[in-house]
Design a protein around this nucleic acid. Structure first.
Lengths: 132, 132
DNA sequence: GATAATCCTTCCAGTTGCTGGAAGGTCAAC
DNA sequence: GTTGACCTTCCAGCAACTGGAAGGATTATC
């Protein structure tokens, strides 16, 4: 399929897809006319990139994550090690989002109209965990 | 406190803190010697910025989120509307992270050493929800 | 109290990750 | 066969930092 279709299916703009190819994240086949040609497997990878980028992973981290299932030669212990680091990071992100959500909910339900100068909710919004 | 201490407490580099001031996200008081002077309340806001930025919110979104508890003049209905949109977004991000995590776990437990050319897990990694 | 180390300041330049626009080739429909 | 929607490359600009220089302030050491 052409880049436009791959864009629709993955949620990434064509510009971004071309950029990812330029930096070597995901290179596509070319059709006879020079157009990029994407398979469903490519679309899955693009969609994966769209998600992980929007969740705060850097392009380099996405490259690593992609390599987890893209590199057939990689040692399984190696895959496991990288995946475990990323798993911990994902769990941390989920916990932070949950605390952000709870704080916002609290703000909406308990603080509207209240004009206290130092709302204790700020603590919740800012989070109380340790800085990594 | 000085910018170095605020940096340690918030997890944001001094450079980034100065940048946030430059773009009007969080302006600090100045001490007699010209040094920036941060209160604990400032640190809470910085920490909040650190978290929400690392979770994929844009600076403009962070500005909105900050305004939810920073702007005393804002109508409570307005706060509620903005907060509700952000809450939905946060829930979506949590769901995406959970699916990313499950897929990675599955990869680690079920796919190591296996060299199938088109691992069905790619589906999981790429996610099956609709593109927003 | 001089000196050195460590902070802080501003300013300017570079990086990352896109994003918009120009100039031009391809394709499908009328 | 030409219009319009696609695609191509290339180059420039923007967002959000990040590094480094040049210089002033504070703290520690001799």
């Amino acid at each position: 399929m052409n880049i436009g279709t791959a864009s629709e299916k993955s949620g990434l703009p064509p510009k971004t897809i071309r950029y990812y190819e330029e930096i070597g994240l995901l290179k596509a086949d070319r059709a006879g006319n020079g157009y990029r040609d994407y398979s469903m497997s490519d679309v899955h990878r693009l969609r994966f990139l769209q998600r992980s980028r929007s969740l705060g992973f850097s392009v380099e981290e996405c490259r690593q994550l992609l390599s987890l299932y893209g590199d057939k030669e990689r040692e399984s212990a190696d895959v496991k090690a990288i995946a475990e680091v990323k798993l911990a990071e994902i769990d941390r992100k989920i916990a932070e989002l949950a605390s952000l959500r709870d704080a916002l909910r609290h703000l909406v339900h308990n603080c509207h109209g209240d004009e206290r100068p130092d709302c204790p909710i700020i603590d919740g919004l800012a989070g109380n965990g340790t800085v990594q």
